[in-house]
Design a protein around this nucleic acid. Sequence first.
DNA 1: CCTACAATGGACTGCGTAGTCCATTCTGAT
DNA 2: ATCAGAATGGACTACGCAGTCCATTGTAGG
Lengths: 202, 202
Amino acid sequence: MRGELTAKGRATRQRIVEGAAAVLRERGAALATLDDIMARTGTSKGQLFHYFPAGKDELLVAVAQFEADQVLEDQQPHLGCLDSWEAWQQWRDVVIERYEAQGDECPLGSLFFQIGRSTPGTRAIVIELLRQWQESLAAGVRALQAAGLIPADVDADIRAAALLAAIQGGVSILLSTGRSTHLRAALDQGIADLRATSHAAV
Amino acid sequence: MRGELTAKGRATRQRIVEGAAAVLRERGAALATLDDIMARTGTSKGQLFHYFPAGKDELLVAVAQFEADQVLEDQQPHLGCLDSWEAWQQWRDVVIERYEAQGDECPLGSLFFQIGRSTPGTRAIVIELLRQWQESLAAGVRALQAAGLIPADVDADIRAAALLAAIQGGVSILLSTGRSTHLRAALDQGIADLRATSHAAV
DNA sequence: CCTACAATGGACTGCGTAGTCCATTCTGAT
DNA sequence: ATCAGAATGGACTACGCAGTCCATTGTAGG
């Protein structure tokens, strides 16, 4: 038992992270307390500080990483193979469905505002998430070019950046208003405009 | 002196709101304390609760309203008369400049996550802000149609919604990463795609 | 002036919460 | 069976912060 963490220990730690994630989604990072997390996960103070010696911040960073991983996973396998208009459409459906189901709970958003500015940890996680997300989208645009569905002179990176911004904006408006109108409009318009490049007179 | 608030009183109240707004931008709503605000504005506890009897929440709502008004004002007069491509371009420049200057401080964002979910107040303010913003954009699109610069069958509301989402997303990515790349990409691409409708083969 | 009430200052209270500490129980290797 | 170290429980501490309260000062109207 030199490796610091037994099987039981790993399970408990995981339970804490997942439970904490649920609590944070429900109450928001600003209002969630360690007691909430203890109650939800059926753990004690001793355990929390046993697995996250640096305290709440360390736990929040772990949760942020957990949530960030989820975001991309939830879009697979569609995000990974955007090589036809059908694939793009399926991906669109999954994204909208996911965020409509999430409603006004924003795991990463509230986390970011709680500790993002101060701690470099969460910020780095968010940046890396955005980077991978955009890279996948850019790959999708290039796949369309390779398939001859859109012109080769379309700038894949700019398009991907614009699409990513459109999604982010749609989601934050969904968070504020509770309505997915803008997310839908942004995604649909973004894809339509991409499609329009194939028969533009420019 | 029956009207509750003298000239001096009104000035103090205003000073508190503006000072609080500054503090909130700097430290984020989650970390800002009444003591910070007192220090910044040179006021006492007594004053804070004299002008905002319901306490911190009431003050935060006042700040949210103040910030929301700023957002639209800062885009004027450009946002009000988007009737030519030059006007759109100028507006684009103002938006980018404003948010680049703001950097990673998000007055409304942090406010929203602090009290937005719980209090209906801030949420209503944000919703109203978004509504007016989108309405101005839609008016701009219609102005382009009226000027014959884009086809009449372009759906102004959808375009406006997509543009608004693009901006919001660009801003939130700016908040996360500190880089305005996405905001620029989103705005430029959005306007370019709008422009492309005038010579599309569809 | 004088008076009523607004404006101000600041000490004080109460509470929620993060974090500490140690006693006890469990687990696996030898 | 034994023992080191992990896992757990929970009482206890420290403290920051919102909100209360009242004494004092300023101010406009009569």
